[in-house]
Design a protein around this nucleic acid. Structure first.
Length: 433
DNA sequence: AGCTATGATTCCCC
DNA sequence: GGGGAATCATAGCT
């Protein structure tokens, strides 16, 4: 038997004898009898405490009746407020100090990640960034649409589960909070529970539930990471670049054969054009250089093909540039709708090719050199007797720029650098080699 | 199934 | 850090 019970029993034993407690509270005599008042109060308190202690042993009806009696007891309000005050000053104040904890950094990290992965946050476009990242990692071409949709579908699944669970937790939290609040409100009639304490209890419940939510967030993050890693680990499961991308890369490579080292800007431009990443461009050029060097003969045909292509493009582009420079004379033979040089975007192509060139292009020089470039190209065309047949045997791109030791010449190779129209113009330069 | 092509990775050097 | 070389791993073709 513990001290409290013993005390209560003592109190009860002393006081119960003189009072009728049957079916209700033993009401002390109203004010007066000041001499015996101290003892009377003690008796009352002992009475109340005893009834509280024994209330659980009684039947529900009995308990309800006693509860009612307790509520009606004249000492109840005073006792209640005093106990509330005591509670407030002791335990709750200590807990209160711990309440305003700063936002959990881990929770913030999880929130940020879920937001970044498109799991939380707005539905539309959600996950697109992650999907794009996965796409970039796996090649980035349109061929990845299947993986894309697969990735997105799985991400959507995770997202749905996450939101369903979150909703469940929130609902459960609200229900539980309401329940506890009702319970406490109900109990506040029989024991000292202030509204402030109820509020605190609600806070505690919310914190508990948010820790559960954090677990949910954590496991969701893990699921997303697993999903991502599965897609990223499949990077070795390579896909060939699109034909268009390969053509763009080859065009650049063979038109810069003297120095096939694109600058960062050029790489970025190429990456954008090919819808691949810069590192993929770097990989491609690295592989290409090695493989070209290893087996020049094998690449000869390809080199010629792209040389011809580049030459045609250049010719078109230059012609367009010339046309733009001239006074739009309708009598010019090559101008107008019948001219094959009059490509709708040839001017852009020219500029694009120029911008792709990471060498020593100077835009201001283009206009000044347009005519000479046209002459050069005409010269090439005349010499080779046409692009299709002549170039095949003429080795427009002979590997003369390769050093004897197998390396490429320095970037300051005259043919590439000195020509302000390098790019299309390099056709001429490389031919000279 | 075997072969070749090709994108990516790794190691090493400068 | 960028590039060369070797290598891996897979796509795609026969």
């Amino acid at each position: 038997m513990d001290d409290q019970s013993r005390m209560l029993q003592t109190l009860a034993g002393v006081n119960l004898a003189g009072h009728s407690v049957q079916g209700g509270m033993a009401l002390p005599p109203p004010h007066g009898h000041e001499g015996a008042d101290g003892d009377g109060r003690k008796q009352d308190i002992g009475d109340i405490l005893h009834q509280i202690m024994t209330i659980t042993d009684q039947s529900l009806d009995e308990a309800q009746a006693k509860k009612h009696a307790l509520n009606c007891h004249r000492m109840k309000p005073a006792l209640f407020s005093v106990l509330c005050e005591i509670k407030e000053k002791t335990g709750l104040s200590i807990r209160g100090a711990q309440e305003e904890d700063p936002p959990d950094p881990q929770l913030m990290r999880l929130d940020n990640m879920l937001l970044a992965e498109g799991v939380s946050g707005p539905e539309k476009g959600g996950g697109s960034a992650a999907a794009a990242a996965a796409a970039a990692a796996s090649g980035g071409s349109s061929d990845n649409s299947i993986e894309h949709s697969d990735y997105r579908a799985k991400l959507t699944q995770i997202r749905q589960i996450y939101h369903t669970e979150l909703e469940k937790y929130e609902q459960a939290c609200n229900e539980f909070t309401t329940h506890v609040m009702n319970l406490l409100r109900e109990q506040s009639r029989t024991r000292p529970i202030s509204p402030k304490e109820i509020e605190r209890m609600v806070g505690i419940i919310h914190r508990k539930f948010s820790s559960i939510q954090m677990q949910l967030k954590q496991s969701t993050c893990e699921a997303v990471m697993i999903l991502r890693s599965r897609f990223l680990d499949a990077r070795r499961k390579r896909r060939n670049f699109s034909k268009q991308a390969t053509e763009i890369l080859n065009e650049y490579f063979y038109s810069h054969l003297s120095n096939p080292y694109p600058s960062e800007e050029a790489k970025e431009e190429l990456a954008k054009k090919c819808s691949i990443t810069v590192s993929q461009v770097s990989n491609w050029f690295g592989n290409k250089r090695i493989r070209y060097k290893k087996n020049i003969g094998k690449f000869q045909e390809e080199a010629n093909l792209y040389a011809a292509k580049t030459a045609v493009t250049a010719a078109h582009a230059v012609a367009a540039a010339v046309q733009n420079n001239q006074t739009n004379s309708p009598t010019t033979p090559n101008s107008g709708s019948s001219g094959s040089f009059n490509l709708p975007n040839s001017g852009d192509m020219f500029m694009n090719m120029q911008s792709l060139n990471g060498d020593s292009y100077q835009g201001s020089q283009v206009g000044a050199n347009v005519q000479s470039q046209v002459d050069t190209l005409r010269h090439v065309i005349n010499q080779t007797g046409g692009y299709n047949d002549g170039l095949g045997g003429n080795s427009l791109y002979s590997p003369h720029n390769l050093n004897a030791n197998g390396g490429w010449q320095d970037a300051t190779t005259p043919s590439s650098v000195t020509s302000p129209t390098e790019g299309p113009g390099s056709v001429h330069s490389d031919t000279s080699n």
